[in-house]
Amino acid sequence: EPSQADLDALLSAVRDNRLSIEQAVTLLTPSSGGGSGGGSMDAKEILTRFKDGGLDRAAAQALLAGRTPA
C-alpha cells in the first residue's frame, strides 16, 4: 500500500509530466490488473482531475489513499 510520501511523489511526477497518468495508475495498482479498488473514482480519473486542476493535492491524495486496498 502506498504511503502518503509515495502518493505525494507520484502526484508531483504526474503534474510535472515526469510520469504519465497510465504509468501512475500501473504503479498504484500493481497486482489488481489495473482495476479500481472499488472506490467511487478510479485512480486514472483522480489523477486526470488532479492534473487538470479539478482536484487539489490533498484531495487527490485522500482519494487515492482511500481507494487503495489495505
Rank of each mutant, 00 (worst) to 15 (best):
A60F: 02
S3A: 08
S32P: 07
S12F: 04
A24R: 00
I46C: 02
N17H: 06
G54I: 15
I21P: 03
R15V: 09
G39C: 12
G34L: 15
D42C: 09
F50Y: 14
T29F: 14
Q61W: 06
E45S: 07
R18N: 08
P30C: 10
A13D: 07
T68H: 15
T29R: 07
I21D: 00
L7F: 04
G38I: 14
A43M: 12
R67E: 08
I46H: 01
K44A: 07
S40E: 13
A9F: 08
P30F: 07
R18K: 13
S32E: 12
L55T: 02
S36N: 09
R57C: 06
Q23P: 01
L27Q: 05
I46R: 00
G38V: 15
D16Y: 04
P2Q: 14
L11K: 00
S12C: 09
Q61N: 10
A24E: 00
A70P: 09
A59S: 12
G38E: 13
S31R: 03
D52A: 09
A70Y: 03
L27S: 04
E45F: 04
R18M: 07
S31Q: 11
R18H: 11
R49W: 06
E22A: 07
G54P: 02
A59D: 09
K51T: 03
G34A: 10
L27I: 12
S12M: 13
T48K: 14
Q4H: 15
A58V: 13
D16C: 04
T68D: 03
G33I: 10
A62Q: 12
A62S: 10
A70E: 11
R49T: 04
A5D: 15
L64G: 00
L55Q: 01
L55P: 00
R67T: 10
L47P: 00
Q61C: 13
K51A: 05
A58K: 09
S36R: 03
Q4Y: 14
Q61K: 14
T26W: 09
A58N: 10
L11A: 00
E45Y: 05
A59Y: 04
S36D: 13
E1P: 10
L10C: 02
P30Y: 13
K51P: 01
L11G: 01
G53I: 01
A60T: 07
V25N: 03
P30D: 04
K44P: 03
L19D: 01
G37V: 11
G54Q: 15
S20N: 05
R67K: 10
L64M: 03
S3K: 05
G35V: 11
G37Q: 08
M41I: 11
R15T: 06
A43S: 09
A60E: 00
A24I: 02
L64Q: 01
A24M: 03
D56I: 03
M41C: 05
T48D: 06
T68Q: 14
A59P: 01
L7R: 03
I21W: 01
D16R: 03
L64V: 02
I46D: 01
L28F: 05
D52C: 09
A58P: 06
R15G: 08
K44H: 12
V14N: 00
Q23R: 05
L47Y: 01
K44F: 14
P30K: 07
V14K: 00
D16P: 00
G66I: 10
S32N: 12
M41T: 09
G33F: 07
S31C: 14
L55I: 14
F50I: 01
D52F: 06
D56E: 10
A58Y: 09
T48Y: 05
L19M: 08
A65P: 02
F50M: 02
A65D: 06
G53L: 03
G37L: 11
L63F: 05
G37N: 13
R57A: 12
V25Q: 04
G33E: 08
R18Q: 08
R49N: 10
A13T: 01
L10G: 01
G38K: 08
R15P: 00
R49Y: 04
A43K: 05
V25C: 06
K51F: 07
N17S: 09
D16N: 05
L63Q: 03
G66P: 06
D6W: 15
S20P: 04
R15D: 04
D42I: 06
G38N: 15
I21M: 03
A62Y: 07
I46Q: 00
P69D: 08
P69Q: 12
L64Y: 01
G53P: 01
R49G: 03
S40P: 11
K44W: 14
L7S: 02
V25E: 03
G34H: 12
L27N: 04
S36V: 11
D52M: 09
D8N: 07
L47T: 00
D42E: 10
N17Q: 05
A60Y: 01
G33D: 11
S32G: 09
P2K: 06
G54T: 15
S36K: 05
L64P: 00
G37M: 13
G37E: 08
L11T: 01
G33C: 14
D42G: 07
G33A: 09
D42S: 07
D16S: 07
L11Y: 02
Q23W: 06
Q61D: 03
